[in-house]
Simulated assay, not measured.
Amino acid sequence: MHASRPEVTRTLLAVMTIALLIVTSLWVLRPFLGALIWATMIVVATWPLMTALQRRLWGKRGLATAVMVGALLLVLFVPLTIAITTVVSNADKVAELVPKLQEATVPEPPSWVSGLPMVGDKIASFWHGVAVNGVAPLLANIKPYAGDALKWLASQAGGLGMVVIQFLLTVAVAGILYSTGETAARGVRGFARRLSGVQGDRVVILAGQAIRGVALGIVVTALVQSTLGGLGLLITGVPFAAVLSAIMFMFCLAQLGPVLVLLPAVGWLFWSGDNTMGSVLLVWTLIVGSLDNFLRPWLIKKGADLPLLLIFSGVIGGLLGFGMIGLFIGPVVLAVTYTLLDAWIGDAWPPEDNATPANDGKQA
């Protein structure tokens, strides 16, 4: 009895020491965790592209890494810089435009608007009210929310420099992971094997597939919708089509859809008196806005062999719980949990022949 006490004490102290080391390490790495998580998601999602690029570049990993890092800079850093510059340079124009909106007039809605299924009467009634009473009452209702939004933007303005630094740090970490990806993957898979054997290795592989599936479904769908939406804006003559397309792409990534940009553009065309182009853009908005209903599920299912409901729950729940990074964290966590539960339950799953009461009655 007395001989076992030192073993229990030593085990407890060892666990406490390991836990303390883990917590301290995470505390030290805390400034880099966001960039590390983002870089890991990006590298896992684009790893097949990097390996294909390496084969085309004479098998040179350094050249492939340089090209991928340059592409990430073009995708992340350059658009961010342009967006910040555009907002700052056009702030005065936006401030001058707000008072003019109160004097603007809106034409009556076309007759076909009321014929739209389900929402036609409500849209026509609201449109008629704005046409009769003007934009001023609408702006008065929006003003409190606009004030809160401006206060939030002002509070976030000081953090723009930190956002740029985080983006650059993400690209730098991604470059390191591109160059040493196999070693990092071997370490993660080895750790998973130490925890739960072959099943742990399978969980890691499935998590990578979930990341690629979500990235393929969300990013490609956002790219297709924003491109088609921007094309519609350009054809119908809406100004600042390129800037609106970029905003549309960000909205699609955030699962808000392109409609938040396209519908105001439709309203602007009708407001300007161009009913023909307004009608064309409205039909195009309905088409582009509904693309994600079948394109995203098909792409996600193609990239990850997981239940579609599981993936969607992870995407939406992760976005609400963790922000943009939750788009990837949510599906990965649910995929790992689902795999572990499936393996655990599967070991004790009853035979199919004996699972129903009917079969039980026959055997009795």
Rank of each mutant, 00 (worst) to 15 (best):
H128G: 02
W152E: 02
S179G: 15
L97E: 03
V171H: 12
G134T: 12
A172I: 15
H128W: 00
G120P: 00
V94T: 08
R186L: 03
V98L: 08
M118Y: 14
Y145N: 08
P99E: 12
A136L: 05
L177V: 03
G187C: 02
A136R: 09
N133F: 04
A95H: 12
V130Q: 12
A172Y: 08
A174Y: 11
A95F: 09
S125Y: 02
G175C: 11
G159K: 05
S155K: 14
K143G: 02
A136W: 00
A184S: 10
G120K: 09
V163M: 14
V106C: 07
V119K: 01
S111N: 05
A172G: 10
P144M: 01
G115A: 14
V132H: 02
V119R: 00
A95S: 15
I165T: 13
A184K: 09
E96M: 14
V130L: 09
V98P: 00
L168P: 01
A146F: 06
I123S: 02
A136E: 14
V164D: 07
A184P: 06
P117M: 06
P99K: 13
I123Y: 03
G181H: 15
T183A: 14
A124T: 04
T170N: 13
G161D: 02
A185I: 10
P109F: 13
A185Q: 07
V113N: 02
V98K: 09
P110V: 05
G175F: 05
S111G: 05
D148M: 04
M118S: 14
V132F: 03
K143W: 05
Q156Y: 10
V106I: 06
Y178L: 15
G161V: 11
A136G: 04
T183Q: 10
F167E: 08
P144A: 04
I165A: 15
S125H: 01
L150M: 10
V106E: 00
L177P: 04
A157W: 15
T180N: 12
V163K: 13
K100P: 00
M118E: 10
W152D: 01
N141K: 12
V94D: 00
P137L: 08
V135R: 02
A172F: 15
W152K: 07
G158M: 08
P110G: 01
G134F: 04
V98T: 05
A185R: 12
G161I: 11
G158N: 10
V98F: 06
Y178M: 12
Q156R: 15
G134W: 01
V94E: 05
A174N: 00
A140L: 04
Y145I: 09
V98E: 11
K151I: 07
R186Q: 10
A157I: 11
G120W: 07
L101H: 04
K151H: 10
V135Y: 01
L160W: 13
E182W: 04
D121I: 05
A104K: 10
V163G: 08
A104M: 09
Q102G: 04
G147W: 01
A172W: 15
T170W: 10
